[in-house]
Simulated assay, not measured.
Amino acid sequence: MHSDWLWVIFTLAAALAQTLRNATQRGLIAGLGATAAAHVRFLFGLPFGLAFLAALLLLTGQMPPRPSLVALGWMLSGSLMQILGTALMLSAMSERSFVVTIAYTKTEPVQVALFGIVMLSEKLTLPLIAAILIATSGVMIMGWPARQVPGMDRHRLKPALLGMASGAFFAMAAISFRGGILALQAENYILAAITTLAIGLLMQTAMLTAWLALRDRRALREIIQAWRPSLGAGFLGAVASAFWYLAFALESAARVRTLALVEILFAQIVSRNMFRQKTSPRDAIGIVLVVVGVVILLNS
């Protein structure tokens, strides 16, 4: 089942599922708040993650790999970083448009590349560096303010900082989950990825449930009451994470997260159809740069 191009399919599927999940979660922010809305993807994603693992075990007849303390450490780090990244992203979405927020978070590939060198000793080639810089420039053009306006510090800078901080946490999460998958040392990469998914969701659900139980029990009750829309976000979140981890099992985090910039194209489609947000000429230039960067990446 291993293929040089299989990671591309997994990444594209993950980006599409994540775009739809983000759009679903965005609608929950007003009623639940950023932290509670972030919890939705984990709490309601956990049953699906466990179901994916159970189905895989039944189909293959295998037992899940027994995680070492090193693997669990990577997964715990990834789980915490992903929680923080999601909360910051949803906070930024409440300040700016859907597409612009996604653009800010997509400074992530540059940070993934740097963290990958430091944490996993991954190597970068010149074509990969060019692809990262060109594609990231595209999303920054889409997200950068067109001109200085009154109140920019409050209305423009804050969501920019939230979005870029979110990207940093997502970058560390990507590196950590890839580290966890590799540390499992499983013969079957699919089993390693789905096991990491189930353990990660279990950790994230436990952490955020405990946090809200101590700090905001009302929000926890409201999450349960909003189970219908939350169920969709949880399912999409579990599907997106499953495909991300499958891609991480086959390819470096830097390449996966650079290709993942196609999410900005999916976000444009969603914003036009769901949120009635128009695409400007500058957005079009940014999209072209993203596409050029992805083409370089796939041919590197």
Rank of each mutant, 00 (worst) to 15 (best):
250 L>C: 11
174 A>L: 04
110 V>N: 01
16 L>N: 07
53 L>H: 03
130 A>H: 04
262 V>T: 09
183 A>Y: 11
229 P>H: 12
67 P>L: 04
204 Q>F: 11
47 P>Y: 06
104 Y>W: 00
206 A>K: 02
22 N>P: 09
45 G>A: 01
213 A>F: 11
140 M>N: 03
279 T>M: 03
190 I>F: 05
49 G>K: 11
294 V>N: 09
187 E>Q: 15
27 G>I: 00
185 Q>D: 15
189 Y>N: 14
222 E>A: 14
278 K>N: 07
158 K>I: 12
287 I>C: 05
281 P>G: 06
56 L>V: 05
208 L>K: 09
250 L>A: 14
287 I>F: 00
32 L>E: 07
188 N>Q: 14
139 V>S: 06
73 G>R: 05
231 L>G: 13
229 P>K: 12
270 V>Q: 00
243 F>A: 10
147 R>C: 01
209 T>E: 11
241 S>W: 05
147 R>K: 04
161 L>S: 00
79 S>I: 08
152 M>L: 04
15 A>N: 08
10 F>W: 10
69 L>K: 04
66 R>D: 14
74 W>T: 14
176 S>C: 13
255 R>D: 06
249 A>E: 03
89 M>G: 11
217 R>L: 11
29 I>V: 13
74 W>Q: 10
184 L>F: 07
159 P>N: 00
93 M>W: 01
78 G>T: 12
139 V>K: 08
181 I>F: 03
289 L>Q: 08
91 S>H: 04
231 L>E: 09
274 M>D: 00
38 A>T: 08
107 T>Q: 07
35 T>M: 07
39 H>S: 13
204 Q>P: 15
191 L>I: 03
221 R>I: 09
22 N>G: 06
116 G>L: 03
181 I>T: 15
184 L>M: 14
202 L>G: 15
39 H>I: 00
88 L>C: 05
136 T>V: 09
215 R>V: 02
159 P>Q: 01
170 F>A: 05
238 A>C: 04
241 S>L: 13
279 T>G: 01
207 M>N: 11
232 G>H: 11
95 E>W: 02
194 I>T: 15
196 T>W: 06
112 V>Y: 04
255 R>C: 06
198 A>Y: 12
25 Q>S: 06
225 Q>S: 13
239 V>L: 10
121 S>N: 14
11 T>Q: 09
248 F>T: 10
254 A>F: 07
273 N>K: 11
170 F>H: 08
287 I>V: 08
129 I>N: 01
192 A>K: 13
